[in-house]
Amino acid sequence: MDNFTKNDLIDLAEQEGHALISLYIPTERAGREVLQNRIRFKNILGEVEGKIQDAGSAGEKFNKQLKELHTWEKDDDWWQHQSDGLAVFLDGVNIHRWRIPVSVPSICTCEEFFTLRPLCELLQDDGQYYLLGVSQNQVRLFQGTKTSIVELHPEALPENLRSALNIDEYVSSLQQHSTSANGTAAMFHGHGGSDLDVKKQDEILQYFRHINRALSSYLGNERRPLVFAGVDYLFPIFKEACEYNTLLEDAVIGNPDHLDADQLHSKSWPIVEPFFATKRNSALERFQAAGPEGQGIDDLDSIVQAADQGQVETLLVKDSHANRVPNRGEQKMMNLAIVKTLRAGGSVFTVPAEKLTRPAAAILRYSIMEGSSK
């Protein structure tokens, strides 16, 4: 999986031209199904060639880029390491591509703007979460979705307690005991098991503060939920050190060193899913209640205007798999609404198509009547 950020979305949204090509394909991660990745890509390149021909002289700038895309077909190793979807953008000069952890439909467009709605599921408030696995031996950070999880590698994140505190003699002062039926694992504790003495508790707290600083630098102002994975008595100490604004109250309890990425995902998603569902359902209920108060709107022109003024608190958009594909005008307006909402610190949720009667809906920070009276 490649790291797609809000700044990437804004950069793409702000680019305009006579012809910009966007293409998406669903991809497979493992098994015999990965053979489909290259086939789907080859098929969509046929659509790209058709779009270029239809664009006439404006499409000539893509000829060199199209040749480069054809070379990707021969990259066996790359096709074996895909995520759930592939997004590619051509502007005639640069090619941007991301392997993304969300399922996307096959899409190929050539417009004066990039088609971005499928990517918004990566940046919305119910699209992704983080998982931090911590033991004395290692620190691992993961980014997950409903269907997948992948390990991240922030440079500032300490490898373990030894590297974080720059000490070599701490092991002799830490006892070890069994934490699972599968074997033994090193644990932080003093002379009384979880009854940590002051020195060891302070040592662990300093360790977690190192981790907190690395997370703060790497995640910035992110609001995606963070799940902690570690032995039970470490979690309260981590909560004391952690300044991240969306650390969940439930954790994956146990030594994470014994778990691979898939096992961590299966244990963490049940913790995250209720959090996402509550936020999404709450947003839908708030929109239904906001209409009579002048704070709920579903006209795209009005939504874009409100988002431009920083007035949109929450934007609801139909799932990209909806049966009805937005027309060109709607797609451009959706791009603008999403980007302007995110830029102003608003939230974006993708909801099932049947939940909205129109392509998008917005909850405003203050009512239309209130705003007009200011």
Rank of each mutant, 00 (worst) to 15 (best):
V150F: 05
F4W: 07
P236H: 15
D8H: 15
N166L: 12
P256H: 05
M187L: 11
D11A: 09
K267V: 01
N221K: 09
S178Y: 05
H153M: 03
N335H: 02
W79R: 07
G346Y: 02
T184N: 06
D2V: 05
D260H: 14
R213M: 07
A353G: 00
P118E: 00
G220N: 08
G56V: 07
N323T: 06
E222N: 13
N245P: 10
F142A: 03
F113K: 04
H189A: 06
D91S: 04
V351M: 06
I363C: 02
M369R: 15
S83G: 04
G31R: 14
T184Y: 11
R40W: 11
P158M: 14
E313C: 10
Y24T: 02
D202S: 09
F114C: 04
A290I: 10
Y130C: 04
L69Y: 06
L174D: 00
P105F: 07
S372H: 14
D250R: 08
I100A: 04
W79G: 03
G31P: 07
N212A: 12
F208S: 10
N255W: 00
S302E: 13
E285M: 06
Q65T: 08
K332P: 02
Q53E: 14
I338Q: 01
D125M: 10
D125E: 15
P105N: 13
N160E: 12
N160Q: 12
I237T: 13
H210C: 13
D301V: 14
E203C: 11
E203R: 15
G92Y: 01
E111G: 01
R38C: 09
N94R: 07
Q136V: 12
D11H: 02
N182W: 07
V312K: 02
D75N: 10
V252D: 00
V231A: 09
E14L: 11
E240D: 08
S83Q: 08
D126A: 14
N3R: 11
D301G: 14
Q305R: 15
D54Y: 12
D54R: 08
Q176S: 07
V139R: 02
L86P: 05
K74R: 06
